[in-house]
Amino acid sequence: MSKNKKPARGSTPPAPEKGYTLSRRRFLEGLGGAAGVLAAGTIPAFASTLPNTTESGTESSVAPGGENVLERIIEEDGAINYPGKPVYYADPAGKEKWAMVIDVKACIGCRRCVYACVKENNIGRDSGFTYIQVLEMEPGSVDVESSVLDYGEGGDPDKWYMPVQCMQCAKPTCVYGCPVKATWKEPDGIVVIDYDKCIACRNCMVTCPYFARHFNWTEPSIPANEVNPKVPYKEKAGVVEKCTFCIQRTRNGATTACTEACPVGARKFGDLNDPESDVSILLKTRRVFRFKEELGNEPMIWYVG
């Protein structure tokens, strides 16, 4: 969203690009900063109340408070409501901080990621949802209100496409909203659901701003030869499920099914703690934005255009 080359200290924030109006946010941050001064009465307090979340996270993009944005997000992207036992169908979390970068300029809207994801994650074939939803956007704005979800197969070269799935937010409203802690953030940042605990109140679906959570209104049904034995299947009946960054693959060193399936290489998946990973290099060198960043969920999927 921002100019990634050395914004001078103390200068006004870079002007937002089209489609994202951040002036109100800036104003509120200013208010927050002022409140911080009043509350703490110290300059460090003032600085810490100004998290510059709109920066892209380049090495030179130093927030007024003097902290590296990306480091802060990596720091925040930790376990929340973690019950201490890893999900039973995957290895325990390692030191990684998983993130994804999606190139919306490259995406052609073919939905191959959607199909690969359905197969990999045992999504019921007649359950009526997919983890990934590819939105067809009109040129000229990032406006989901006028986006089309059920566009024709193959995609239109005159439109652009924005795949949306669970963002594995650093501040996940779904995890905050679950009344029984049946969903949590693993130490490596992946948000998972305990299918044997979910009480089906569906509050997480209401609190998620990305419409990433889906309920199994019917028992998932999959042809016997297509069932992935590494992923829960029948226990998903009557509970909520969502994208897990293919936890069963990525914890074993593989990449996600959607990244693997993308024919144009629009998806990059990797570890933010590894400075040589695709995602780290992309976030350092490219201008990126995050979907609905103004909500402050700190999504861990970035878009690059």
Binding site: G177, P179, V180, K181, N203
Partner: peptide, 11 residues
């Protein structure tokens, strides 16, 4: 579970 593991951030 509402009694056993209540999540204080959930309304």
């Amino acid at each position: 579970w509402m009694l056993l593991t209540p999540n204080p951030t959930s309304p």
